[in-house]
Design a protein around this nucleic acid. Structure first.
Length: 419
RNA sequence: GGAGGGGUGGCCGAGCGGUCAAUGGCAGCAGACUGUAAAUCUGCCGACGGAAGUCUACGUAAGUUCAAAUCUUACCCCCUCCA
């Protein structure tokens, strides 16, 4: 075993470790159960997405090993916007938007961490509770005096902006002081000694560590995880339709599953370590797998991640949809599956609605032109037959008949013909 | 406050009076190949229209012109520099 603490051993083995302050001390510190560690997140959207997943799964691990996670939602700092490594300043949100975003994010977290009053139950805090009440002069005198501009402009996150001649407003420049102050607060009020975050948070985290050392003379710790990138070095978590959200309202469980089902070969095992509860020894065996066998591991990955994020019960429905859509051509039960888009067509409409109309009305295509182009390119199928004419009209069929209309291989629409 | 440089399609970025619905790259979509992946190749990628074509777009608003993303003026916004 590399470390004394079980948490560090597992976190490191699974690929959650990027860098930390005084690693040996953290290791000692964590040999005692019930330690507090926090993760802060700004609340710029009403759901978390795949990009947030690494630090949250890290917290989950922290909890599993008998420690107590603190989740800090940035009700206060979101009003500033973290400028680190961003080339566009964050939009300024209203209090109402922030409040509703916090609700959404809490909903996302519920299945991932156990909240409550027990010794290892997670705690939720909102930094608006203290940041909103700050007074400028006292803050400058008590906190600001510990920050050296010389040092601040040396941080990678700031330096990058300065060198690129990007504007960095004073508002944004203050972000790191506030995040440092959060750490100070959480230490003073809860005894929280560790801050987790993505590697891009390093500068901000260090500010907090240094503030506590200077102000209170205590040593607290920072621990960062690598950013989630694909094997090709791309930031992970984006798809055609936008971010891979954790909220069911923004991305169906079926689409969430599909995201993991379709990851790059080279990423499968790494993601398995990070985002499943499978034993490390189990996953180790997968490292040598290749070819078609790897393809089936992707299903396992998709199952496991989806089970953690959306509950194992959601898998049945997803599997049913997948089976019907891809693995056999029967569409008899497809109508029962909530994951698939449906479109009702009256018998009378069969003769006066073209495929183009249907594609547009069902939102499969954004415009008639797009629908026509897609047809011209051979991307539209009805019951697995390519159609080549934009004026194709579905045949009149008996009541209750169904046609399966596909745009490419991934988007499907079930047309129910009714009277 | 002064001086200078900019604002072009999802992003980057050319164009600087007609041939511009706007070169190129990225991203995206579809087809082929495959393992529902990657890579590769091919096609598409403002709206409406069967088409001819029409309309809406180059920060905003006026103007000059037969004709403006391109010229003029005002305004808005961004960036850089200032003993």
């Amino acid at each position: 075993m590399k470390y004394k603490s079980s948490f560090l051993n597992e976190a490191d083995a699974r690929g959650f470790f990027y860098q930390s302050t005084n690693l040996a001390e953290i290791d000692n510190f964590l040999t005692v159960k019930g330690r507090l560690g926090y993760l802060g997140s700004d609340v710029t959207a009403r759901s978390l997405h795949v990009g947030h997943l690494i630090p949250i799964f890290l917290l989950r691990l922290f909890q599993k090993h008998g420690h107590r996670p603190v989740v800090l939602v940035g009700g206060g700092t979101t009003k500033i916007g973290d400028p680190s490594f961003k080339n566009v300043a964050r939009p300024i949100l209203t209090d109402e938007e922030i409040a509703s975003n916090i609700n959404g994010i809490v909903t996302c977290l519920a299945p991932l961490l156990k909240f409550g009053d027990g010794a290892t139950d997670a705690i939720l805090v909102n930094n608006a509770d203290w940041l909103d009440r700050l007074e400028y002069i006292p803050f400058l005198r008590e906190i600001g005096k510990f920050f050296s501009i010389n040092r601040m402009i040396g941080f990678e996150s700031v330096k990058a902006k300065l060198e690129a001649n990007d504007s960095l407003s004073f508002l944004e420049f203050n972000y790191m002081l506030l995040q440092a102050y959060d750490f100070y607060k959480l230490y003073s009020e809860f005894g929280c000694c560790i801050q987790f975050g993505g590697q891009d948070q390093w500068g901000n985290i260090i500010c907090g560590v240094e503030l506590l050392k200077k102000k209170l003379g205590v040593e607290v710790f920072g621990f960062t995880n690598p950013l989630l990138t694909t094997a090709g070095g791309q930031k992970m978590g984006k798809t055609a339709r936008g971010a891979v959200w954790l909220s069911k309202d923004l991305l169906s469980t079926y689409d969430f599953w599909q995201y993991w089902r379709n990851v790059d070969d080279a990423d499968v095992v790494r993601l398995m370590y990070l985002f499943t509860d499978l034993e490390i020894s189990e996953i180790k065996k997968m490292e040598s797998v290749g070819g078609e066998e790897l393809n089936s591991l992707k299903k396992l990955l998709a199952d496991e991640v989806t089970a953690i994020v959306h509950g194992r019960s959601s898998l049945m429905e997803i599997h049913q949809t997948v089976a019907e859509l891809f693995e056999n051509n029967s569409k008899d039960n497809l109508s029962c599956s909530p994951s698939i888009l449906k479109y009702s067509l009256s018998k009378a409409d069969c003769s006066n609605k073209s495929i183009v109309d249907i594609l547009v009305e069902s939102n499969l295509c954004k415009s008639r032109g797009e629908a026509k182009r897609l047809i011209r390119g051979g991307g539209v199928q009805v019951d697995n037959c390519h159609i080549s004419e934009s004026y194709y009209v579905p045949p009149e069929t008996a009541d209750g008949a169904m046609l399966c209309l596909s745009c490419g291989k991934k988007k499907h629409l079930l047309i129910l013909i009714k009277n």
